[in-house]
Design a protein around this nucleic acid. Structure first.
Lengths: 338, 338
DNA sequence: ATGAAAGCGCTAACAC
DNA sequence: GTGTTAGCGCTTTCAT
């Protein structure tokens, strides 16, 4: 192991040329003669010369790395976003350093440090649920590094972002539930200081109001994990009159909710409709299959990466902040009435 | 944007010292006086000096990056492995560059190129299903870069690897199915040139033989995607006598298999038992919940990263190849009889 | 206890 | 058309 890579200098010495000539030949500089170019190139190919990225980067004082901070990697939505980011970054020869915060504020702060130490060109971030203090994100900007938030944006920081239309996604789903005859629709949400959770709740409430259904606080709960679902759903089923629909913040909660309702003797969707959010592959694995709001994570990843790269390259002209919205789509399956 | 970071030289000039003194002060060199050290350090902290990683790396001609090649990122098992790798790499301050091959040979080759161009210290790889030619992996080793395979190892290359005990995992699962009364057990497998698929099949066959059940080729099929499951499971159900159990190569196939059997009127697990492989979260979302073989992806990721890092650091003494095996565990749920 | 100089691999201004 | 030199930020002999 640790074989030394061949360098420009090695080639120069071997070919009795100067390093600069070799450099120019390889980069197809017009001033170099055809013969020299061929000579150099043949030698380079033959000896598998690879330019030392590190040296290039040191000279230009910039690397081609993008940092990504997600709450979790083992997560359908976020892994989908990462795939989208990767797809777009690869096209432009950017590498990715991926950090996960594990929904933990401290690890999020540390991830930012790691990425800044690595001198990434820019950072794509989705904040953890437990983050309520934002100076680490401000540090990124103060450091002169580009920052784009996606999905779980941070309202305290003034920078580019890519989000889905959470309000409309929720509104449309709840509207659909109402039109199918549901009137007691529960909302299993998340921490309201997350804009995604708050916007969906507003969409939910407005859909109810527009159909002259009053908002019942008892039907609105923070319930964004399967553990909470196990606890909260049975309690909600005991409310009189019982809910005839659950609109859930993610597919995992929806899936558990569905199971719990079934175990309690309710027929899905005849007695109770259940709707998830994300449209992950588990929507096809539940029984009945799960109606869900598609978040288009891949598109979001691509859009966020695109925006960041445009900022890095200075292509994005807009001087103020850019806010991109990805449209959601309700995918109706069998867990909701028609 | 693009604010210049403060450098050693800047500090030196400001403090009227030489760069070397500043460097030594920061690195706590014994020859530097206490006063100078404090002076320099205070200044560094105050001005948020960060050593330029690129320069360090250029000097030592080595970066602290590990490359990872997986078939897919949006995949429970692989994302879990990545999380494990990340966990271990982070401890030692290694960054990750993640590439996905999308089960495509060409992209796998390109991923290797990308990682070698980035001069990663080592590569962790799980090969794509379509790979039948291995010279790109040999290039990694020839290039002097460490290589560790995990899960989908490449038998054509002589290097370190981390696998699960596929044979034992399959044997135990099938043994369990037989003990619960099943005798017509189908195997929904994968391409036999993948060792994981072949080993599981051998475990399956040996379990049958040890119980004096003959191996019926009609009950063995390559069926490793949901698309194939939709096609193949209905056909297998028409075989007479019909299978009374399905042992599946992954949880997605198992989940679909379960649904198809239910739709065909079979009771699960009374008529047909279904067992998956991976033990992903979908095992809790199917109805009934899915018995599955836990692959311990997180542990595998940690073990693979550990092995690679030990090789990089020269800690791993063994000169031959190291083969680490992660033990699987059958997790019994409600899709199999007792 | 501190400084000067060289060098990691590469490129670009400036020779000739 | 090609060579010389300097410099990116850092560390490390070798001086003093």
């Amino acid at each position: 192991m640790d074989k030394r890579q061949i360098t420009l200098k090695d080639i120069a010495k071997e070919l009795k040329l100067s390093p600069s000539t070799v450099s120019r030949a390889l980069r197809n500089h017009p001033a170099i003669s055809k013969e020299t170019k061929e000579l150099v190139r043949d030698y380079a190919v033959k000896h598998k010369y690879k330019p030392n990225t590190l040296a290039l980067q040191l000279r230009t004082n910039r690397n081609n790395t993008i940092g990504v901070i997600v709450p979790e990697i083992v997560h359908y939505f976020f892994s989908t976003v990462i795939a989208g980011i990767q797809d777009e970054a690869e096209k432009e020869n950017y590498n990715l350093i991926i950090c996960q915060s594990n929904e933990n504020y401290g690890r999020e702060v540390k991830s930012v440090e790691t990425l800044l130490d690595a001198r990434v060109r820019g950072i794509l971030a989705s904040q953890s649920k437990s983050t309520e203090e934002f100076s680490h994100f401000q540090d990124i900007i103060d450091n002169g590094t580009h920052l784009v938030f996606f999905d779980r944006i941070c309202t305290g920081i003034n920078t580019d972002k890519v989000v889905i239309d959470d309000y409309a996604g929720a509104y449309n789903a709840v509207d659909y539930l109402i039109r199918s005859g549901c009137t007691r629709i529960a909302f299993l949400g998340s921490n309201p200081h997350l804009p995604i959770a708050n916007n969906r709740r507003m969409g939910y409430e407005d859909a109810l109001r527009n159909h002259n259904i009053s908002v019942d606080k008892a039907l609105i709960q923070v319930c964004d994990t399967i553990e909470l679902a196990r606890e909260i759903v049975p309690v909600m089923l005991k409310i009189a009159p019982a809910p005839d629909a659950f609109f859930c913040i993610n597919d995992e909660v929806a899936s558990y909710c569905l199971q719990i309702c079934k175990s309690a003797g309710y027929k899905i969707p005849q007695d109770i409709s259940v709707c998830g959010f994300t449209n992950s592959y588990i929507t096809e694995m539940t029984d009945p299959t799960l109606t869900s709001v598609d978040q288009h994570g891949f598109e979001m990843g691509k859009a966020a990466a695109r925006l960041l790269i445009n900022r890095i390259k200075g292509i994005e002209k807009k001087t103020g902040i850019v806010s991109k919205v990805i449209k959601t789509k309700l995918v109706v399956r069998n867990s909701t009435r028609n």
